[in-house]
């Protein structure tokens, strides 16, 4: 019964969550805390904090972990499958359909028309990432990090994974500096 409820809960999350994993967090909360009462608000907050501390897509981390916690290994599998499988099947069917007709003029038109729309969505996402970075780090640091990233990835041609790993190592091995800037940030917000 629990497995069936897990399946239903994450099926709804997967099918109703538009805009990628992060936008489905409130939906997961609604199912897990409000509807089924599997966790308290605090416990859910903990799971979210843990999920955010690790890399990778957030929706599957939450589904996998909550499923595992509620119904063990099979709970994890059921929650994961319910989250990702239905939309992937839709995706494969629709894209295969488009590919079958890709030489037709109207399909080419569709393919061309969608590119600028996606570009607008990406530009918005770019701005969201930058403005969140600016809120947390301040203009100065955010811009310095942008410039460094441009030089390393576009200028030097370094793989993005290397740049990100270097940043992670930097955060982990510079304890004092991190604390100082936390304090500074606290002060600048107070002032």
């Amino acid at each position: 019964m629990t497995l069936w409820h897990l399946c239903l809960a994450f099926l709804r999350v997967g099918l109703l969550g538009y805009g990628g994993g992060p936008s489905s967090i409130p939906l997961v909360h609604k199912e897990v805390v409000d509807k089924y009462g599997w966790m308290t608000d605090d416990e859910f907050g903990d799971v979210l904090a843990l999920g955010n501390a690790l890399p990778g897509p957030i929706a599957t981390k939450m589904a996998g972990y909550i499923g595992w916690r509620i119904a063990g290994f099979f709970g994890m599998l059921v929650a994961l499958f319910a989250t990702i499988v239905p939309t992937i099947i839709l995706m494969v069917i629709l894209l295969t359909f488009l590919l079958t007709f890709q030489d037709k003029g109207w399909v080419k038109g569709m393919t061309h028309a969608v590119v600028p729309v996606v570009a607008v969505m990406l530009a918005t996402l770019t701005w969201q990432f930058f403005s969140k970075a600016k809120e947390g780090l301040g203009w100065w640091k955010a811009i310095v990090l942008v410039v460094i990233s441009v030089v390393l990835m576009e200028g030097v041609g370094l793989h993005p994974a290397i740049v990100i790993l270097a940043l992670l190592v930097y955060v982990l091995v510079m304890p004092n500096k991190t604390q100082q800037s936390e304090v500074k940030r606290g002060k600048s917000i107070d002032g």
Binding site: L122, L125, T126, F130, A133, S149, P160, L167, L172, Q179
Partner: peptide, 19 residues
């Protein structure tokens, strides 16, 4: 605070990749 800063410090890099 370190863990919170992991996500924060990576945002500008992701912004560049998206741009």
């Amino acid at each position: 605070p370190k863990v919170k800063r992991l996500t924060l410090l990576i945002r500008p890099t992701i912004a560049v990749l998206l741009a």
